[in-house]
Amino acid sequence: MRAAALTAGLLAGLLLAWLLLAGFLLVGFLLVAARADAQTLVGYTVEGDAIGAPLTGAPGDAARGAGLVADRTLSLCVLCHSGLEAPAHMQGNLAPSLAGIGARLSEGQIRLRIVNMKALNPESIMPAYGGSSPGARVANAWRGKPILSGEEIEDIVAYLSSLKG
């Protein structure tokens, strides 16, 4: 899990270097690690219960994020969470309200929860939007892809961080 705490590029570089240096057993171990990580399409570093650094170079756009969290087919946030800018009767209650979340959690904490809530709670029903841990039989259209892009996640982080109370 925490081995994923490297950027994809760094990991590829390390793999190459290690493969050249390592013995046979080590090669086998690395192949397993590489396969597990192939699902994580967003590169990031976890520190404690947060991802401190943004996933992209450009800062997120809170207005775009507000639109994204209310999208019932792309982000699906509103299907489970309430406390968002969407008609009340369209908001689900399978998950805690996100009202005031920006006052309770730091930007980095929010980012990790969206990228991979299962790093904190392996039993969570919240999908890992950064692309890790998909289930069985992923449909063709979605196979090998993260649910949201790094840009989209940053937009949502910016929006949720602005919900102060």
Partner: peptide, 17 residues
């Protein structure tokens, strides 16, 4: 069994929620 890109089982919704 957890299924699909969203990684949810039938039981996640229909037993637990």
């Amino acid at each position: 069994q957890r299924m699909g890109q969203l990684d949810l089982s039938c039981a996640n919704c229909h037993d637990d929620h």
